[in-house]
Design a binder for these strands. Structure first.
Length: 662
RNA sequence: GCCCUCAUAGCUCAGUCGGUAGAGCGCGUCCUUGGUAAGGACGAGGCCACCGGUUCAAAUCCGGUUGAGGGCUCCA
């Protein structure tokens, strides 16, 4: 039998030989190192039997794909161990995820907590030590292997029943993997034996719903990770520790950027430095939008409830909106307060800016000659979030959107969307954000508008993306209730993905609000509305860049750019005058006149991640110069204020410099 | 909303068997006046998140509430 290898060479094997036999034929070293095989592009067990002409690549621990196989096997190992510790547990599914694997387990009465990890890990260790082989078996759903599979966790596991029914409905094969006495429904592949699974660690436990449906049973999800070597496992764990130090909540505290209080959960309070940073983001965006012909507007925070009925938000997001309630003192007893029902016209705090922009649009007649008309607003919106979803600056209950609405003709959609894609790319590049994932989300179940409208909207977004030739993924059913959207997702330091930018097409709100424009034909038409935000939420974006820069902001973003340190009290006056010169040159500078020593002040500036330290003493005062110390490399430079400020990058990167830096 | 974990000084954290609190950093005052990552002394800070229970006695044990952390679900 003729087998093709990846390097172009071929091997002759006897009929019926497996991938493991191939490895052995190539060499004993490879036979030992092989984890799985890629046969004609498909990852299979090493025990898989080969056929004439197969293309075979043997996977060893160096291959990314082999790590997934290892982790999948580790999930089986963990399920086995959990059944040993908790005989009443019922198994469901256990897939591989980005950094490891998990297994969802139904615990009828009882729970699994991190306190149970040592016991489970001990069982896992023992099974790994025994080096039991993983064996694949196929069942007809009514044989011994099937019976043993059902029996392993009590025989009445309804989740297994559901899984099997699903597989049989699809007409797929029922395949199982067994190691020792443990059997699990599984497509495979797996490592040859449990001996590969010595570097496994349980990481966390959480709740999850069966079939990801919150109306269904709550399962216990136990997470773990696995590596081929002890070192890799250790490296991963230290990496995780390092990542936690970059967490924007940790840095927000350390760098004194923002804070939270129990009295306002999910409502960030920005400290002076955080406010500076926030305002720098706003300033940068204002430049971007004015260059692109946007018109900045301001609309009220509170609008009548009626308006939200009209927009459709009330029906769709009632639970997530804040409403006002007027109060009244009792005439005779001022201590008694009751709701002022008579005069209370129901009002709601805006969760979005679009109805406000529609009101502005409506206040004038419009012509196609004004189009595309782009209203923008740094709009503060409030959204009541379910408990358990708030997360630092990433998920708050009040946030500022760099929001805008483009009113245009249907013909202008393509060019508007393409302009936006370029626009957003430029902004993300300016902040050094390279890992941006683009998603196209289509019509959800809960939606308004006609089929035809949705079809047109979805295809025009898709067309714009395709014409740009940028990679994206489609998220079926994930669109807004009024239209499909393109989302820009950025990952945090713990690799969690957050939506930042968004471009949403909307044919229905203009209609609901009766918006019109006069076309070239002299007739009235309904405009198309494009909702868009680039940062998305200023708060969230701020969190993202804090983590991206690990708090070491580039000069133009740094809330404190320079601290001036006199060598001793004698030079305080000179330090103050240097600071003033810097302020005049547009540099955010402070002078540290405390009686601490220079070394201490340098350390302090360094911990605050201030980009430059200027030290002045006898020498500098005499020659009217400054000594500049760079945060990044500690290099010192003897210069004058006027000369130095011309050389430092006080301005954000432009399109050209951002592209060059990439 | 759901599952698990957690809550002690501004911050990071100790606090043993239940006997009403401790460190470092920071902060204040004083001494020190110094050349590139921590000079020294003294001092002020706590209703141990909140509400209830058990107990002679609760930071400590038990319930609940609120908030936070990790996930799930959700995210216009």
């Amino acid at each position: 039998m003729h087998i093709q290898l990846p390097d172009g060479s071929a091997r002759e094997l006897e009929a019926g030989a497996s991938a493991a036999d191939l490895a052995l034929a190539i060499g004993p070293g490879l036979a030992k190192a092989a984890v799985a095989a890629k046969i004609n592009g498909q990852i299979r067990d090493l025990s898989a039997v080969l056929n004439e002409g197969d293309q075979v690549a043997l996977l060893t621990k160096k291959d990314e794909e082999a790590l997934e196989v290892l982790r999948h096997s580790a999930a089986h190992l963990m399920a086995d161990a959990i059944l040993r510790v908790f005989p009443k547990a019922e198994l469901t599914i256990g897939p591989v995820v980005e950094d490891g694997f998990y297994y969802d387990i139904y615990m009828k009465d009882g729970k699994i907590t991190p306190d149970d990890f040592p016991a489970i890990e001990k069982e896992m260790e023992q099974i790994a030590k025994a080096s039991v082989p993983f064996q694949r078996c196929v069942s007809n759903g009514n044989d011994e292997i099937f019976a043993r599979y059902r029996a392993i966790d009590g025989g009445h596991n309804k989740f297994k029943t559901e899984l099997i029914a699903g597989i049989q409905e699809r007409g797929s094969e029922l395949s199982f993997y067994k190691h020792g006495d443990f059997i699990d429904l599984c497509r495979g592949p797996h490592v040859p034996n449990t001996g590969f699974l010595k570097n496994v660690k349980l990481t966390k436990v959480s709740g999850a719903y069966w079939r990801a449906d919150s109306t269904k049973e709550q399962l216990v999800r136990v997470y773990g990770t696995a590596f081929f070597s002890k070192e890799e496992l250790k490296d991963y764990l230290t990496q995780l520790e390092e990542a936690k130090k970059r967490d924007h909540r940790v840095l927000g505290e350390k760098l004194d950027l923002f804070t939270f209080t129990e009295d306002a959960p999910g409502f960030p309070f920005f400290q002076p430095k955080g406010t500076l940073l926030f305002n720098t983001l706003v300033g940068y965006m204002r430049k971007q939008i004015s260059r692109r012909g946007y018109l900045e507007v301001k609309t009220p925070l509170i609008l009548s409830e009626e308006l939200w009925h009209k927009s459709g938000h009330y029906q769709n997001y009632l639970e997530n909106m804040f409403f006002t309630k007027l109060k009244l003192r009792d005439e005779h007893d001022p201590e008694q307060v009751k709701d002022n029902v008579e005069e209370d016209r129901p009002m709601a705090v805006k969760p979005m800016n679009c109805p406000g922009h529609c009101m502005l649009y409506k206040s004038h007649p419009h012509s196609h000659n004004e189009f595309p008309l782009r209203y923008s607003e740094m709009g503060l919106v409030h959204r009541r979030e379910m408990s358990g979803v708030r997360h630092g600056l990433f998920r708050v209950q009040a946030f500022t959107q760099d929001d805008a609405h483009h009113f245009c003709t249907p013909e202008q959609i393509g060019s508007e969307v393409q302009m936006l894609i370029d626009f957003f790319a430029e902004v993300y590049a300016a902040f050094g954000l390279t890992d941006v994932r683009i998603e196209l989300s289509t019509r959800p179940e809960k939606s308004i508008g006609s089929d035809q409208m949705w079809e047109t909207a979805e295809s025009s977004l898709k067309k714009a993306l395709d014409e740009k030739g940028i990679p994206y993924v489609v998220n079926p059913g994930d669109g807004a209730f009024y239209g499909p959207k393109i989302d820009f997702h950025i990952r945090d330091v713990l690799k969690r993905s957050w939506q930042c930018g968004t471009i949403q097409l909307d044919f229905s709100m203009p209609e609901r609000f009766g918006l019109t424009y006069v076309g070239s034909d002299g007739e009235k038409h309904t405009p198309v509305m494009i909702h868009r935000a680039c940062y998305g939420s200023l708060e969230r974006f701020l969190g993202i860049i804090i983590e991206n820069f690990a708090g070491d902001f580039p000069l133009w973003l740094a809330p404190e750019q320079v601290v001036v340190i006199p060598v001793s009290e004698k030079f305080n006056d000179y330090a103050v005058s240097v600071r003033e010169q810097l302020l005049d040159a547009g540099v955010r500078a402070h002078a540290n006149l405390s009686d601490d020593r220079v070394g201490y002040k340098i350390r302090d500036a360094s911990l605050k991640k201030i980009p430059y330290v200027v030290v002045v003493g006898d020498k500098e005062q005499a020659s009217q110069t400054i000594n500049v110390r760079n945060r990044d490399d500690g290099q010192q430079l003897e210069t004058t204020v006027s000369e130095w400020v011309g050389t430092i990058p006080l301005e954000p990167p432009t399109r050209a410099t951002a592209v060059a830096a990439e």
